[in-house]
Computed example of a mutant assay.
Amino acid sequence: MKNIISRTLLSLLVAGGFAAQANAAEKVTLKVAHFLPTASIAHWDMIEPWCEKINKESEGRLECQIYPAMQLGGTPPQLLTQARDGVADIVWTLPGYTPGRFPISEVFELPFFAPDHQKTTRALWDFSEKHAFKSEFAGLKPIGIWVNGPNYFHMRDKEVKTVEGLQGLKIRAASRMSNNFLTAVGANAMGMPLPQAVEGISKGVLDGLMVPWEVVPAVKLDELTKYHAEIKDEQGNGMATSTMIYVMNKAKYDSLPDDLKKVIDNNSGADTSAWIASRFEAADVKGREAAEKAGGVIYSWSQEEVNKLKGASSQVAQQWIDDMTSKGMKGQALYDDARALVEKYNKK
C-alpha cells in the first residue's frame, strides 16, 4: 500500500511539474491597436519592430496581433479606454485625442517648447515619471512616452507667410494646447483625430493641418496639400509638438509570469521612448522628401513674423499654469520643472 501511495504521489508531482512547465512555456498573444494604416511610420517602423524584439527576447512566448486603423472598432479617442478596459492589450495613441485626461504632461505641447525629438522625449519621460504616472496613467503600464517632430502648417491651397494671413483659417491640430495656440493667433482651431482631418482637407472643409512631416506620406498629405510652412524660433523650437504614448493594460501586464514581465520591462522606459522618437525623427525626413517629390512648396517664415507668432501665443503657457493651479496643483512649479528638464537634456 505504501508503494502504491508513493507511486501515486510521484505521478502527481510529475504531472504537476509538466503542467508548470507547460504554463511557463505558454504563448501570450498581445492585441496591439492603433488608428493609422499599415503604411504609417508607427506601424511598420515602431510597433512591428518592437513586437519582433519582445518575441525574440521571450523565445517566441510573447507575440503581437496588430490591429491598425481601428480594426477593433471604435474611434481614435476611444483607444485609451480600450487599453484600460482590456479590449486591447496595448495601444499607441495621442493624449491630445482625450482632452483633460493628461493635463500635467501636456505642458510639453505648449507653443515653442520642444527643440529636439529624442532629447525632449527623455525630459518628458522623467517629468511624467515624477509627476504624472500615478494620476494620468492609472490602470496602464507605460511602455513609451515621446514627442513627435515640430508641427508645421500644411495648407491645401493657401501660401500663408504671416500671422495676419492665419486669421479665420480652418486649421486642424491634434491637441488642446495646439488648438489653444491656433485660437490665440487668430485661426479657427478644428480639433479632430487625423483620419477625420484628412477627409476634411480632401473635401476643402479645412484650409490646412498642423502636423509633423512624418504624417505626410502615411495619409497622402503630399497629394492633398500644396504649401508647407516650416516655422521655428531662433532657439530651434517648433511652434508645437504632440505627446504620444504606447501603453499596456496594467492587469494584462500583471498577469504575465515574472520572466515575461521582465521582457516587457526591458523594452519600456526612457531608452525605449527615445528609440521610438528616433523612428519618428527619421520619418520626418522621408515625409519632407515626399512633399518635395510631389511638387509641394516648402518655405519658412521671416524671423519677424515668427516673433509675432510667439508673442500672440505667449498667453497659452500662462493659461496652462493658471489651469493647473486652479486644480490644486503647483502650476508654475510644474512648468518650471518641465522647462528645466528640456534645457537639461538639450544641452547634452
Rank of each mutant, 00 (worst) to 15 (best):
A19T: 02
D45G: 06
Q315M: 13
C64L: 03
L166D: 00
V285N: 09
A283V: 00
E59I: 15
T162N: 13
T120W: 00
I298E: 05
K262N: 06
V216Q: 04
K203N: 09
L209Q: 02
A317Y: 03
K170S: 08
A39R: 14
S11N: 13
E26P: 02
D254V: 03
T93D: 10
V185K: 04
W320S: 01
G144C: 09
T243E: 12
R101W: 10
K344D: 10
K252T: 10
S11E: 15
L30M: 06
S105D: 14
P111Q: 07
Q315P: 04
W125P: 01
V216H: 03
S313M: 07
A138H: 08
K250L: 14
L256G: 03
N237I: 13
T225D: 08
F181T: 00
Y335F: 15
Q303V: 04
D271G: 11
G238Q: 02
E52R: 12
S58L: 02
R122L: 06
V216A: 13
N267F: 07
L309P: 02
M70D: 12
E292P: 08
E214S: 11
D284W: 03
S268Q: 07
P212V: 00
S268I: 08
E199R: 15
L309Y: 02
A274W: 01
L9D: 07
V185L: 10
H43N: 12
W275H: 10
H154R: 05
F112M: 00
G208H: 05
I47T: 11
A290H: 05
K27Q: 14
G60R: 09
E234A: 12
A197T: 07
M210I: 00
K134A: 04
I4H: 12
V211W: 11
L140H: 04
V205P: 11
T183H: 14
G86W: 04
D126A: 15
T93R: 06
E106M: 12
I4S: 15
A19Y: 08
D258L: 06
I245S: 09
D265V: 03
T225N: 09
K261G: 05
D336R: 06
G96S: 08
A340H: 06
V219T: 02
G144M: 07
V185P: 09
S314I: 05
T8D: 11
L124Q: 08
I201V: 15
L79G: 12
E304A: 12
A283D: 00
E164V: 04
I90V: 14
S302D: 03
K119D: 09
E234L: 14
M239S: 05
